[in-house]
Design a protein around this nucleic acid. Structure first.
Lengths: 117, 117
DNA sequence: TTAACATATGAACACATACTCATATGTAAA
DNA sequence: TTTACATATGAGTATGTGTTCATATGTTAA
């Protein structure tokens, strides 16, 4: 699937080898991609930012992010799977909160980036 | 499109209003989503990580990330558009380098996250 | 000029993703 | 039990994305 690389003759093998030695592992690359993918959707960003302030139930979240209950619930499932949020059941209600405060730091780092342009 | 929110009666309006006051602006949300989207692909992660070490031409990059020249070139276009890489032409060669070192910090923050799980 | 090469790009395809709609599940109150 | 409500989820759909293939563009050397 990548045969045409063989036809290229301008490769600086020393540089390439040196850079490849410092390469991330395949697992690190996959993990990073997955983490950033979770943060690459507006609805999820709003949900996480809301939960960074306060524990909220699904219908509160739907109101905050101005999306349907169903849509929010689907996104919460992804966030649960990614272990970014945890939940607590209280009767029919389900309260969500951040499972990893670390994400807040990624947010502020990201905000610093887009403001720095 | 979000009519069913009206049917929900469990909303804690005080909490919701308080959280909405601290909400990110629509532009901030879009900017964050775009930034993280760029970082959510393995090929782009590898390219950026390689460029964080050294300026490289397209065919060097293809060799480093083990992808076709075409694929790498397409991704470099996205990275150029997002102003994450800049380039320098030298004859037929085009050398790319990071335009925003800030991205490296997002990387290490992301790595810290996936290791912390 | 022509030939060779490095890079860029358009079209097509396969695949993923975010939403809506309808409905299922589970809980509490009547 | 029946009814009402909060949440979860499956199916369907529209849209987006990453790769490949073929080819165009642009540069250098013969």
């Amino acid at each position: 699937m990548v045969e045409d690389r063989c036809e290229i003759q301008c490769v600086d093998q020393d540089k390439v080898l040196k850079v490849k030695e410092n390469a991330l592992t395949e697992e690190e690359v996959l993990g990073l991609a997955e983490t950033f993918k979770i943060l690459s959707d507006g609805t999820r960003i709003k949900i996480l930012q809301a939960l960074s302030q306060e524990e909220l139930c699904v219908c509160d979240l739907a109101e905050v992010v101005e999306m349907s209950q169903s849509s929010v619930s689907h996104q919460l499932r992804l966030l649960r799977t990614a272990r970014l949020v945890k939940f607590r059941k209280a009767g029919k209600m389900v309260y969500y909160s951040l499972d990893d405060e670390h994400i807040v730091q990624l947010f502020s780092q990201g905000l610093a980036h887009i403001r720095h342009r």
